[in-house]
Design a binder for these strands. Structure first.
Length: 467
RNA sequence: GGCGGGGUAGCCAAGUGGUAAGGCAGGGCUCUGCAAAAGCCUCAUCCGUCGGUUCGAUUCCGACCCUCGCCUCCA
């Protein structure tokens, strides 16, 4: 089924067709983290969204090259490096590692390439030189190099592709003192920031003098290097549309004279407990905060994947509890199927995979996709309860689930190892029950519960689950 | 001020010009020594308000109210 996606460039849902003549290869770039702190749950929504896009493409048989940059030089980073008296690499390395750990905990497939801004300085400089040569960039009296929107537009290029812009009515940013700049026009943006004393050791030599790259240029340089001057998909959070992505387009198209990206995808933000996330409201969570509360990465992933990517989503702790229960329902069903299937394998049964992929093909309608999953769970449970399923049927159902889970990525909870102490207690309880010593049996049940294990009596005997 | 999203059950969230998916919570039942767990069943005369178009609107149009985002730090 043809995948349709909302392209910010055209502001419409369009069929996605790879640029690749073979129709298989897809180049996808997602703006990655600025490693100055732990990423928060809002950031994670975007990265999980990117993972969904990638997995959906792979599910459809595409060969995706997923590139995600690591922004490891930037104002906030430099400030903190100075404050904490460390080196740039030491400081950013810590948060980069934490980011990748978290990404893994959330079940995201690792991007094929993760270029660092600091290791792409040569490409960045080359791109700036190209822009200067074409007369679109200029060096100001402060030593910094800026991109000229006016010159760019003078070349017949269009600034404002991702949103309607009215440059005359644009307000100057309140946090940026305009006298700090020597730009020709307020809308111009920095490509290369000249070194200032506060930068400390953070600077690189360049034909324009010592300094460091501006924010937007790194993404143009790295994405072009990895994916070519024109590539398929570029995604990020909706706040990046302007100025970041708009400026990326301007720099890239200004330098290459070619269309930069075919499809721009933007993920909406989230609210936490119904409010905009903020540290003062106490609703600002990193993944680590949530793990510390006893939730798992897959539960967070599930919750982040319950709403459509273009809608603001309300992330709540209550919802996270619901996610735990909902996943347990799937786990229970899949566990029973696995048990019944034994070692038997089979081709996926039809129904679920078709409904699931039809939902995703419709601009990633993940809610409808989950709807199909839970209807399937319901039906499977019924067949299981009726004993109307044999091993091959269970294997086929299981294969269908595994197929859709290659996109959902929530997997199945791996059965926890049961410690000897726990299974001994369970055996003791079974014996007590048999002897009709229910008082003793219940005491053991409570003891197990206190140790974090729930004992279930099923028609086939007891089952132990980690709580 | 400019531009752009939203308002669907207690909560979260899909969706359609023809009478409201799914999840969580709640209620009932089955199972059980009792529980728990699990499973099954149930749970919106109604989709922000007011008008309009229509045989028919939650879905289209208009106005209004509320809310969120972007406007050069920002996922």
């Amino acid at each position: 089924m043809a995948l349709k996606l909302f392209n910010t460039l055209t502001r419409s849902v369009q069929e996605f067709k790879p640029l690749d003549a073979g129709g298989k290869k897809v180049g996808m770039y997602c703006c990655g983290p600025t490693v100055y702190d732990f990423a928060h749950i809002g950031n994670w929504r975007t990265f999980v969204f990117a993972d969904l896009v990638r997995r959906t493409l792979e599910f459809s048989g595409n060969d995706v090259t997923h590139v995600m940059n690591i922004t490891d030089v930037e104002d906030k980073i430099i400030k903190r490096v100075r404050e904490t008296q460390t080196t740039l690499r030491e400081f950013t390395g810590k948060f980069e590692a934490a980011f990748l750990d978290d990404l893994k905990a959330l079940g995201c497939r690792e991007p094929h390439q993760k270029p660092r801004a600091t290791e792409s300085i040569a490409e960045i400089i080359a791109l700036i030189e190209k822009l200067i040569a074409r007369g679109i960039a200029y060096q100001a009296n402060d030593g910094s190099v800026y991109f000229s929107i006016a010159k760019y537009q003078g070349c017949g290029c269009h600034y404002g592709q991702l949103l309607k812009l009215n440059l005359d009515e644009m307000r100057a940013g309140e946090r940026v003192a305009s006298d700090e700049y020597e730009k020709e026009s307020i809308a111009d943006f920095a490509l290369w920031k000249a070194r200032v004393p506060d930068d400390g050791d953070v600077f690189w030599p360049s034909p324009f003098g010592a300094g460091r790259p501006g924010w937007h240029i790194e993404c143009s340089a790295m994405s072009i290097k990895a994916l070519g001057e024109t590539f398929d998909l570029h995604l990020g959070g909706e706040d990046l549309k302007f100025p970041h992505h708009e400026d990326e387009i301007a720099q890239s198209e200004g330098a290459t004279g070619k269309p930069f990206v075919k499809f721009w995808l933007h993920g909406a933000h989230l609210l936490v407990e119904g409010r905009k996330m903020s540290k003062s409201l106490g609703n600002f969570f990193t993944l680590r905060d949530l793990l510390a509360k006893g939730f798992t990465g897959r539960e967070v992933r599930y919750l982040l994947l319950t709403a459509h990517y273009r809608e603001t989503f309300n992330f709540t702790l209550d919802g996270l509890h619901g996610a735990k229960t909902a996943l347990a329902r799937i786990d229970e069903c899949v566990g029973k199927l696995r048990e019944l299937a034994g070692g038997v394998t089979a081709a996926p049964e039809s129904g679920l995979p078709e409904q699931f992929s039809a939902a995703l093909a419709d601009d990633l309608n993940i809610s409808a996709a989950w709807g199909a999953v839970f209807k399937w769970v319901s039906a499977a449970n019924k067949r299981l309860a009726e004993n109307s399923m044999n091993a091959p049927a269970a294997a086929a159902a299981l294969a269908a689930w595994e197929k859709v889970d290659s996109v959902l990525g929530v997997g199945v909870n791996s059965e926890a190892e049961i410690p000897a102490e726990i299974s001994a207690l369970a055996a003791e309880r079974t014996a007590a029950k048999k002897a009709k010593d229910f008082k003793r049996a219940d005491a053991i049940r409570d003891e197990l519960k206190a140790k974090g294990w729930v004992i279930e009596d099923t028609p086939k005997g007891i089952k132990l689950k980690k709580n």
